[in-house]
Amino acid sequence: MKIAVLIKQVPGSESPLPLNSTQTWVDEPQVTYTMNPPDNYALEEALLIKENVGDGEVVAVSLGPERVKKVIREGLAKGADRGIYLEENSQIETDPLSIARSFASVLQDENFDLILTGLQSDDAGMGQTGVLIGELLGLSTATLAVQTNIQDEQIRVKRELESGWFQWVKLPLPASISIQSGLNTPRYPSLKGIMGAKKKEIRVIPASEHQTAEKTQTIKKVFVPQTTKKTEVIEGNADTAAARILEILKSDVKVL
């Protein structure tokens, strides 16, 4: 079982997010980065599938500026066998179609049985790379997987639907599956894993070798959402807050 896991590096949930001077993205130097949390689940699922099947290879793949090698290394430390790094010079690349083309051009020669992605990234949140790659490479696809079972040349995936509904889908391999968060418990890298990671291969694909497509969409501007709602802010100690809440319940909203 040969599995590619696409891992993205994104601003951490507690990172400050000041805008850059052109207001086209956040100010990179002030941001602390982490592995995109849904991708961490995808990685764990890949490692579990490999362990259950009993043999195979897990390859951690990432695209971005130099710093994203860190998440590949993290993947290797957790047990991925090797890495592929697609060099990208701009700090943030937001066109899913051209990103997917880049990935597809690199992944197609490797003949993966399975491509796993997190359901979406915590930065641009486009949520489509895995499915796009699947279509570009002619693979079957499924999203929001909360459980996976490999059964000879097929994968059975439990998909999460809305409002508490689920559905099983059976796909022929090769397939590209996007993984919903929370379906497993991602492992910590062991010390041996961390020390061993640097001995594992990371293949570097220069930008010129994978970027061919024109950009079809770009972020022109980012801004802090303006609230249109009139909000009453209640501050002060617990007693005053409780008193005001009681008044709201009684007089404003009238639910008492």
Partner: peptide, 14 residues
């Protein structure tokens, strides 16, 4: 070193 930092991240997360 990078190893030190990776180990530190892991322990902090743990």
């Amino acid at each position: 070193t990078d190893d030190h930092k990776d180990i530190e991240n892991m322990v902090l997360e743990f």
